[in-house]
Design a protein around this nucleic acid. Structure first.
Length: 261
DNA sequence: TATTCCCTGTGC
DNA sequence: GCACAGGGAATA
């Protein structure tokens, strides 16, 4: 279930298990995984020590002692499962890392879209990724400057990782709702005041998500997104009806009452 | 800047 | 059956 709060949580769990450890073996368990991480690369990873585990947006990075990186992306469904090597492989394991302390890290993903790749040192620094949502440099003025040169509606723009990194489909919609901005509003026609509210909305939604430790449910209670996946339900702010529309092939949820164009 | 595709599972 | 799924790279 990986939006940014989940990936942050996953990165912490990975760090606790992987940092300082040496890789004994790296295996793939699906053809698409083998394509992303060919056998020669997997073999070359044996004996490498993991120096640091970090995150950039929704990308998890493991820096190795030879200066290269393992690059992990969960996409829609990925997750970690940690267990001693003696236990059986979890269902939907696509990659597994065997460590020198007898632990095994499994990347599970029913859809097999998650990837682990290996890149050279210089690559992560040059990726075209925007600032983190909580970066102080991310101000309304900066955002307006970037959006001024942009055609198209705001909500799909928020999914562009080169604008702001780490915002996914849920938080793009939730941020627009909190700022009372219609998701189809042209991105270049939102003024400073509303952009300030949008940033607040995105940050507020993310920090609520973070507080929930990256889970969508607590027991039986669904964690309350305000519009996401609530088509037809009444808006908690104005009582209007939550609608769904499609933008760039993805669902967008918004309140038809208080998010006016 | 919008589709198409990568995959498989779930729920109607 | 079919629509839909939280992402993103490749394509027109």
């Amino acid at each position: 279930m990986p939006e940014l709060p989940e990936v942050e949580f996953a990165t912490q769990r990975l760090r606790a298990v992987l940092e300082g450890r040496t890789l004994r073996a790296v295996e793939t368990h699906h053809p698409s995984a083998a394509r992303a991480l060919p056998s020669a690369t997997r073999r070359a990873l044996c004996g490498r020590r993991v120096v640091a585990v970090t995150r950039r947006g929704k990308i998890q990075l493991a820096r190795l002692d030879d200066g290269t990186f393992l690059v992990v992306h969960f996409r829609l469904n990925g997750d970690w499962e940690f267990a001693p090597v003696l236990e059986s492989l979890p269902r939907y394991t696509r990659y597994s890392l065997l460590l020198d302390d007898g632990m095994r890290i499994a990347l599970t993903d029913s859809r097999a879209l998650a990837t682990i790749t290996r890149v050279a040192e210089s690559v992560p620094a040059t990726w075209k990724l925007g600032p983190e949502p909580d970066a102080p440099a991310l101000t309304p003025a900066w955002l307006r400057e970037r959006l001024a040169r942009r055609r198209g509606p705001i909500k799909p723009a928020l999914l562009d990782q080169s604008l702001i990194v780490g915002i996914g489909n849920i938080y793009a919609a939730e941020g627009c709702w909190r700022a009372a901005i219609h998701p189809a509003t042209p991105a270049d026609r939102i003024g400073l005041t509303r952009l300030a509210r949008l940033l607040e909305g995105i940050r507020g939604a993310l920090s609520d998500g973070h507080r929930n430790a990256g889970r969508y449910h607590q027991g039986d209670r669904r964690i309350p997104f305000r519009v996401y996946d609530r088509e037809g339900e009444p808006c908690g702010r104005c009582g209007g009806t939550v609608r769904r529309l499609e933008q760039a092939g993805r669902s967008t949820y918004y309140c038809a009452g208080c998010q006016r164009r």
